[in-house]
């Protein structure tokens, strides 16, 4: 104990220059080490283990499971009508959520990128949905669509959007719009926050110079604002696509995939397989398929962006 404290109080005099050089060389790694260790043990190792599950029969309550099954899971996925349906739903879920989140978020960011009385309080309030836990947004919106305790179905009926003031969550043709609307509500602030940050980093002098040159506001938007926002837009759209495609919370809470699987997306289907049927082998195989599809998407977006940059 005392020896250790002695060492601690006079490290420089005892160990000299070499150890200090050693320290400074490895210093960056000391700072990054905890993050790396954590990511490797909690995310990378499970990912690799999860990939090995895709070729094994892993059912939690079955002591005889665990055997090697080759590509049987992938063959089953290929013929699984529920999976095809989930894939189709994932596409619509992602595209429509993203479309509205992005355009409404961009408009909001542009509105907030001016100085006006009340701006700070309005900004805090419109960003609030992002702080609402996803499960709570889901529950809340599930209640909002219930015609008995919420005026929303009646309003939609009055506006002519619904032919009857019923609960859209129980109508297989319309149910997907429930989670999508909840997702739009929840996701607008994300785009607004990131795009507002990007807007605020555009130097004001550029606009001043442009307006002296007689450029209209529309021209300024097209030739200054959009090019400045483009990198942020590209990266946030890509990340959000992947996050939304993976985002099962709202659907699990609001509809649990129903009615009649009309809102089942791939990630909620994985969850159903793992959690309700405890078939982890099959769930992992579906997850691997989703992973490959999303990676292909990300790589192709990066590729398209590169070739566009090269052209200009």
């Amino acid at each position: 104990m005392t020896a250790a404290t002695d060492l601690g109080t006079h490290p420089a005099s005892r160990q000299g220059v070499t150890s200090r050089r050693f320290l400074s060389r490895f210093e960056p790694y000391f700072y990054a080490a905890p993050a790396i260790v954590l990511l490797v043990t909690v995310m990378m190792v499970p990912l690799v283990v999860g990939l090995t599950y895709t070729v094994r029969d892993i059912r939690i309550l079955n002591p005889f499971s665990g055997g090697y099954v080759g590509f049987a899971h992938f063959e089953a996925i290929w013929h699984d009508q529920n999976f095809h349906n989930a894939l189709y739903n994932t596409f619509w879920w992602t595209v429509s959520s993203l479309f509205f989140q992005f355009f409404l978020g961009l408009t909001l960011a542009l509105l907030l990128n001016r100085t006006f009385p009340g701006r700070r309080i309005i900004q805090s309030l419109v960003f609030l949905p992002w702080a609402v836990p996803a499960f709570l947004s889901g529950l809340n919106w599930a209640w909002m669509f219930n015609p008995v305790i919420s005026p929303l179905p009646q309003w939609l009926f009055t506006l002519g959007i619904l032919s009857e003031p019923t609960n859209i969550l129980s109508d297989p043709d319309l149910a997907m719009w429930g989670p999508i609307i909840a997702n739009i509500w929840f996701g607008i602030p994300f785009f607004a926050i990131t795009l507002l940050a990007a807007l605020q980093s555009i130097p004001g002098e550029i606009y001043e110079a442009a307006s002296i040159d007689g450029a209209s506001r529309k021209q300024q938007f097209v030739s200054i604002t959009l090019p400045f926002l483009a990198p942020t837009i590209a990266i946030t759209l890509m990340l959000r696509t992947i996050w939304i495609a993976n985002f099962a919370d709202l659907i699990i809470v609001m509809t649990n995939g129903g009615p009649a699987d009309s809102t089942q997306i791939v990630s909620s289907y994985i969850f159903t397989q793992a959690f309700r049927r405890l078939d982890f082998g099959y769930a992992s195989a579906i997850a691997a398929v989703l992973l490959v599809l999303l990676m292909a998407y990300a790589v192709s977006i990066i590729f398209i962006r590169r070739s566009l940059l090269r052209e200009t």
Partner: peptide, 30 residues
């Protein structure tokens, strides 16, 4: 700092943002 392996660590971190976390449920549970 600029150090060897930094780019690899950054890419690793970006990749973790991409894959479906549901995929990790089974292995992490095990």
């Amino acid at each position: 700092f600029h150090y060897r392996g930094k780019a690899v660590i950054i890419v690793l971190m970006l990749v973790t943002q991409m894959f479906p976390l549901v995929m990790l449920i089974a292995p992490i549970f095990r």
